[in-house]
Simulated assay, not measured.
Amino acid sequence: MIRFCGAVGLLVAAVGLSLAQDASPLDKIDPAKLPPAMRPPKGTSPEAIANLSQKIDRVDCFAFRGDGKFLAISGPDQTIRVWATEGPKLNWSFKQPDSIVCLAFPPEGKLLVAGDASGNVRILDKADTRQLVVKAAFPAHKDGPVWALATHPDGKKIATGGRDKLLKIWDISKAKPALLASLPDHKDEIRGVAYSPDGNMLISVSAEEKQFRVWDATSDKPKAGEVVKLPAPAIGVNFSPDGKSIVLAGSRGTGAVWTLKEGKFDDPVDLETDKRAILAANFSADGSMIAGTLAHSRTEDRVVVWTKDGKKKHEFKYDAHVPAAGFAPDNRHLAAVSDAGVFVIRLPK
């Protein structure tokens, strides 16, 4: 499963089976035993158990590996950091030529895909070791960032979107990635893209179009399908683990769960938002919950967990801008990025 939160081109990836019934490395975190620099600062919710920023001013994107053992983060300091969640401890850091705006772990877990602010994509190999190498780097989009990124369930393809309004499909299975398709149907920059868990469907959203597009992804060049109208622009999209629903993030009135019925998306269920914009939204690995963030004020945002029918289950206040949050694969923990760090949140029992 690929989870994408498009508030700032942020990707939350969780690949593989749910770990909800298994021991998770995150269960072992004891805030009282962490070094002071890794403890959440004042003004954070008491459910925050760790801060993995290491004095970084801002973090824009993160991705969990499917087994939950690694968490990749990055932002405007042009450095990708991968944390081992057991401990937690910093596994490695890798300086990049430009700011990273989106990250994704493909299903097999040894690669890490990164999109940067200049429109380039980098494929990093051996991401589960300290011997990281750049497998490939290539220009993907013109005129600005790679805002949207999703890996295909087969691990051989990725979909990207950017300011040039193009949705592109790439083959990353070879030493030199190849462009398989460039789809010009969007009229504005693409902010969200997601593959269905079986890889047969692709959804894309752009910054100002009040709609989402459905693509038949059964071939290397996806075919345009249903276009679904929305009351306001969407900035992120994610599939449920069973592939039967999607959740959208965006302006007021856009945040909703859409269900696939007889081949078409219908009957949207609105998320409870207090009439606020949803900066990000994504499903838990077992599909029972949705996590995201609500814009509240210039100095305060909220991390929210909803039930799959849109009802608020948990709400955590942060005295910081929190552009996105997403579930770890264990369904019991969240990561939330902010201008005050990367918070690991443990859900109340």
Rank of each mutant, 00 (worst) to 15 (best):
S204M: 04
K165E: 10
A175E: 10
H186S: 15
R130Q: 12
G66E: 00
R3V: 14
D171P: 06
D98K: 05
G162V: 02
K308S: 10
V133N: 07
I29Y: 12
I203S: 08
D286L: 10
Y195P: 02
T293M: 01
A320S: 14
A285H: 06
V133Q: 08
W215Y: 13
D171I: 07
E47R: 04
I100K: 06
F62E: 01
F212A: 06
K244E: 15
L230V: 05
R163S: 14
V342T: 14
S24E: 06
R122H: 10
K244H: 11
K55D: 14
P106K: 13
L111T: 01
V146T: 09
S288A: 15
H296S: 10
W215D: 11
L347Q: 02
A13T: 15
I29W: 05
T129G: 04
P139T: 12
G243F: 07
K42Q: 08
V303N: 06
T129H: 02
A7V: 04
M289Y: 13
H333P: 03
G326L: 06
A324Q: 02
N282K: 00
R213P: 01
A127M: 12
V344D: 06
G310S: 00
I29R: 11
L149W: 15
A324P: 00
K311I: 09
P31G: 07
A328L: 04
G292K: 03
P241W: 11
D266A: 12
A217C: 06
K55L: 01
A178Q: 15
L230D: 09
P197F: 12
N120C: 11
R122Q: 11
L294W: 11
G119S: 05
D171E: 09
K135Y: 15
D270V: 00
A335M: 11
S99D: 13
R191H: 11
P184N: 02
T273C: 14
W215T: 03
E208S: 13
G326V: 05
A280P: 01
I123F: 13
D98S: 09
D286S: 15
K311G: 13
P348C: 06
H333W: 02
R302E: 14
K89E: 13
